[in-house]
């Protein structure tokens, strides 16, 4: 309870950008989401953890409005951006055109170029997606979401397919962009360290419900050797039923 209160204090859940209530989703007779309640405050980064097949992607797709088979209520305020595990860039559009896809308003080229520069790829605008490395493609996908100036960014294991070094770089980039733009985010991840490095709050999904909701009150910039990090990590791993030391297994 104490953790929950702290979370509300720091992020203002009184003004949520996402409110989901009693989300139910079943595939055939398999109930995947069994009454999920979720709120994300303005500017808050929430990490969503859970075992494989626990329904994290399903929940994210529902929040993104991509799943018409769910019941319950979802309301999002403001613009939404989505980044998937695979970059999902259109192979037949150059990087710039991928970022500008469906973009409206004034100075689309300028905004596109700015977004590309923000992810460190200012000079790759003319490239085809097939000419990019995995890490670069994922950064373009991030730019495609960012250029829409989202109030809430939904990310489904966005860095999971990258190698360890690229993952660290992307996490740092994400932290920097977040500090700059102040978007809220729901970050689906398998990686407990990533969750604790980036999130203001961690949720654990199990048996179709959110069973754990913990504020991460560590100060920024965070590092894995920060005092207090280890405790949070151990708690989270226990909650995910992962043995934290070899003799526990």
């Amino acid at each position: 309870m104490a953790a929950r209160a702290a979370g509300e204090l720091t992020t203002g859940l009184a003004d949520p950008v996402v409110t989901a209530t009693r989300i139910l989703r079943a595939f055939g007779d398999q109930t995947v989401l069994d009454g999920v309640d979720l709120r994300i405050g303005r500017g808050e980064v929430v990490a969503l953890l859970g075992g494989s097949g626990s329904g994290k992607s399903t929940l994210l797709r529902i929040l993104a409005g991509l799943d018409s088979g769910a019941t319950g209520e979802v309301s999002t305020r403001g613009r939404t951006g989505v980044v998937f595990q695979e970059h999902r860039l259109l192979p037949w559009k150059r990087v710039t055109d991928n970022i500008a896809l469906g973009l409206r308003g004034s100075d689309v080229p300028g905004r596109t170029a700015a977004a590309l520069a923000e992810v460190g790829l200012a000079d790759r605008g003319r490239a085809w997606p097939a000419e990019l490395s995995g890490g670069q493609a994922q950064r373009v996908a991030l730019a495609r979401a960012l250029v829409r100036e989202p109030d809430i960014l939904l990310l489904d294991e966005p860095f999971a397919a990258l190698d360890a070094l690229n993952r660290l770089r992307m996490q740092a980039l994400f932290g920097r962009l977040r500090a700059e733009h102040g978007f809220a985010a729901l970050l689906v991840t398998h990686d407990v360290d990533e969750a604790l490095l980036l999130a203001d709050r961690t949720l654990v999904l199990e048996d179709g419900r959110i069973v754990e909701d913990t504020a991460v009150t560590l100060p920024h910039p965070r590092a894995a050797d920060h005092p207090g990090f280890g405790d949070l990590r151990r708690n989270l791993l226990t909650r995910l039923r992962v043995p934290t030391s070899p003799d526990e297994s």
Binding site: A64, G65, L66, T80, G81, V82, F84, E86, R88, L89, L90, W92, K93, L101, G102, L103, R104, R144, R148
Partner: peptide
């Protein structure tokens, strides 16, 4: 299908998805 979905998250209407995703993909 995942590309079509990504285009939806970029706010493309059904007609725009046909133009930017389906037709070039079928080319």
């Amino acid at each position: 299908e995942r590309l079509v979905e990504a285009a939806r998250t970029c706010g493309l209407s059904a007609a725009a998805r046909v133009r930017h995703v389906v037709l070039p993909g079928a080319l």
